[in-house]
Design a protein around this nucleic acid. Structure first.
Lengths: 194, 194
DNA sequence: CTGGACTCGGAACGGCAGATCCGGTTCCGT
DNA sequence: ACGGAACCGGATCTGCCGTTCCGAGTCCAG
């Protein structure tokens, strides 16, 4: 007889519905960003409104839960890349991956864009982890001579965010993405010297 | 006795209020983007709601009027730059100018980002002019050897938009803007050859 | 199987935003 | 100066959204 609700396992149907809600929320938030409505999420999940609110106290909490999970997946790739063979490849591949994977996910891109701006956001720790992982990739690439020594973390994060924002907002196709990233990557690489 | 309202000059007070509304709308739209409310605009203009709706049939119409005027000012600078001395300078200066001038103007940046995506937007012709002007600057810079010949209009516009979006959303300071643009510009310039 | 705690779906509530309406006011040709 | 057309402000209508509430339904320990 638990005197507190913390840690108690969810009832089977509640657990099922929680997953349906998260899946629907990811779809809807991807399309509409934070303008998504709880009713639409409930409808797509085939669930009542109260069912959502039982698991997530507010719209923002649900929003955060979805984004944190999504950022975690990005983090996995960053960590995996850190073990890759060529440091230069690892860096540029992750940069490209970040842009490709976030395109079409409005809520995620927005979250990346405001990361570091809003200290009270629940996604802040997750974003700091992502920045740390990016930092590791950057320093390795610089040590290997694949990226200029004088570029800093701040510019790299700014450029990643910029590409993610534009790719999502303008629905870049693969060719435009490749060509735009090529320009940025050439700017990051050491210039050829006579 | 005018049988149509078209072309008739506005009454003096109406004209005054129109300017007050446009000025207030520019301020409010800059801060809140399309989420800005008509009430807030009316309040800041010191005017009633009906006064706005008499001149602009919908919120979108007001939004468009403000953005078109704002884009026109960008266009002026593009045309002025076209007459500048060094084609390379003209191009990179205008690129920088576009980013600097749009930062902090959410509605304007949003409009640039969706330009070319929404054919029914009233801002489309204005945006096409802006693209044409950018094209002139780009081709001159390429002819002068200041920008690689193989980069196309599409990437350049995509990169401008990307920088504008990120600079606005993340409140880039001057240093971050300079450093990020330096990377992009280096990517656009011909590589030094042995 | 069965009782009761837990969960469900959707109606209901309060608030906010775009757009409209209307009685009172201001401008301007005569 | 004056009269009516044009304009003004803000109350009002309509519709959407986040959140809460409640009667009905579902699960599971004993």
């Amino acid at each position: 007889m638990p005197e507190s609700t913390v840690g108690r396992p969810l009832r089977a149907d509640a657990q099922r519905n929680r997953l349906k809600v998260l899946a629907a929320a990811e779809r809807v938030l991807a399309k509409d960003g934070s303008a998504a409505s709880m009713r639409e999420i409930a409808r797509q999940a085939g669930v009542g409104l109260a069912t959502i609110y039982r698991q997530f106290p507010t719209k923002e909490a649900l929003y955060e839960a979805v984004v944190v999970e999504r950022v975690r997946r990005l983090l996995d790739h960053a960590h995996a890349a850190a073990h890759a063979t060529d440091p230069g490849d690892a860096f540029f591949t992750f940069f490209t991956f970040a842009v490709t994977e976030t395109t079409g996910e409005k809520a995620l891109v927005d979250s990346l864009a405001v990361a570091g701006l809003d200290p009270k956001a629940g996604t802040a720790p997750m974003h700091r982890d992502l920045e740390k992982a990016t930092g590791v990739l950057l320093r390795r690439a610089q040590a290997a001579g694949a990226v200029r020594a004088e570029v800093g973390m701040a510019e790299v994060l700014a450029l990643i965010t910029a590409m993610c924002l534009a790719a999502d907002r303008q629905h870049w196709d693969e060719q435009l993405r490749t060509r735009s990233l090529t320009v940025v990557f050439d700017g990051l690489r050491p210039q050829l010297r006579p």
